[in-house]
Simulated assay, not measured.
Amino acid sequence: MHSTAAHLCSDRRDILLVALVIPLHGPAGIVGPSCEFSAQLAAEELNAAGGILDREVRLVVVDGGAEPHQVADEVAGLVALGAVDAVVGWHTSAVRQALAPRIAHRVPYIYTAQYEGGEVTPGVFLTGETDIQQLAPAMRLLTEATGARRWCTVGSDYVWPRVTARTARRFAAESRSSVVDEVFVPLNTEEFGPALRRIEASGADAVLMLLLGDDAVRFNRAFTAAGLHQHCIRLSTHMDENLLFATGAEASEGLWAAAGYFDSLMTSESLSFGHRYARRFGDEAPVAGSLGESCFEGILLLGALADHRRSLTVPAPPGPEETISYEGPRGALRLRGNHLEQRLYLARADALDFEITAQL
């Protein structure tokens, strides 16, 4: 095993291999292609500028849609062999919790998904939005704009939705609202009838959707078919354009999303990224969306960390006098501790697009 790892390392001194951990199947598999394309574009652009520490960046795609312990076993095995130099990816918090203790002390690990917050494992860096950053102001703005005050949480039954649901109860109280019910369903739920009946019985006028990928799509369609959209809004922190397209225009009425990036974001940085992405992968490629584009950010942050420290050893978070920053599709960003600071937005679904209504 050790001789194999040494052989791998000696053969690729000019190559930097990054395990890209993204869902290729399961409910979140719908965003896998945009994650891979976005990370590939970032790697290609970094390589055109000289790579990371003068090494060519190559991606090793790992299916993050498997059971968390299986993903952790596979990635930890690659790290132990010396077959990858860093780990980047969008995957569930359950996968992150299984993976971080096994690799974060060995290689840089950059987690790009919006998540519940609170990750402090040394060696883990996070580009995604957190509940405190986006959920509290989004709920407050929607309460003010729509008058909705009775929230029902509908989430997948694992760590991110469970923790976020607890946080949402506090946020609701702070905006003089309340969470009147919470419903958790297994991943890959096909039938949402029981959940819809709970929403209706609760008298909720707003739903906090904490569902992944295809589960969110099926819920949106069932929600609208039941007529609940006529008196109940929905807010999601994991809804991008790919999921909106799959949902369909007829099931998007009253749907809101919060994120750090939308394809409709009209900044010079986002417009440039959208143009480069379309030129590289063509008009038929899935849109990047906030979920896929986060992997572009993850690769850029890896480059910024390595360039700042001139090393790929596991970096400590920057101190108060130290600035680690870069510019990407979300604008000029910098690390505060182990989290990326960024602008966040609230958007309303308009058929098959998102109309940004406020910066959070």
Rank of each mutant, 00 (worst) to 15 (best):
D283E: 00
D283H: 02
E284L: 02
E284C: 00
A285S: 00
A285W: 02
P286E: 02
P286R: 00
V287Q: 06
V287P: 11
G289K: 01
G289H: 01
G289W: 01
G289V: 01
S290Q: 02
S290E: 03
S290W: 03
L291A: 01
L291W: 03
L291K: 01
L291R: 00
L291T: 01
L291I: 08
G292E: 01
G292A: 04
G292Y: 00
E293H: 05
S294E: 03
S294C: 05
S294T: 06
C295N: 03
F296G: 00
F296Q: 06
E297T: 15
E297W: 05
E297S: 11
E297N: 06
G298S: 06
I299Y: 05
I299D: 04
I299N: 06
I299Q: 06
I299P: 03
I299T: 03
L301V: 12
L301M: 12
L301Y: 10
L302K: 04
L302E: 11
G303H: 06
G303E: 03
G303K: 03
G303R: 08
A304W: 07
A304N: 05
L305Q: 06
L305G: 05
A306K: 14
A306S: 14
D307M: 02
D307R: 07
D307H: 04
H308T: 10
H308P: 12
H308Y: 04
H308A: 07
R309D: 14
R309L: 04
R309I: 05
R310G: 01
R310C: 04
R310E: 09
R310S: 04
S311M: 10
L312E: 05
L312V: 12
L312A: 05
T313W: 07
T313D: 09
T313F: 07
V314Q: 04
V314T: 05
P315W: 07
P315Q: 07
A316I: 05
A316G: 02
P317H: 04
P317N: 12
P317L: 10
P318D: 11
G319R: 01
G319K: 01
G319A: 07
G319Q: 05
P320T: 09
P320Y: 13
E321K: 06
E322T: 10
E322K: 09
T323N: 15
T323V: 14
T323I: 15
I324K: 10
S325R: 11
S325T: 13
S325G: 12
S325E: 15
S325Y: 03
Y326D: 05
Y326E: 03
Y326S: 04
Y326Q: 14
E327M: 13
E327L: 09
G328Y: 02
G328N: 13
P329M: 13
G331Q: 09
A332G: 13
L333A: 13
L333G: 09
R334K: 11
R334V: 15
R334L: 12
R334E: 15
L335N: 01
L335V: 09
L335A: 13
L335E: 06
G337K: 12
G337D: 13
G337F: 11
G337V: 15
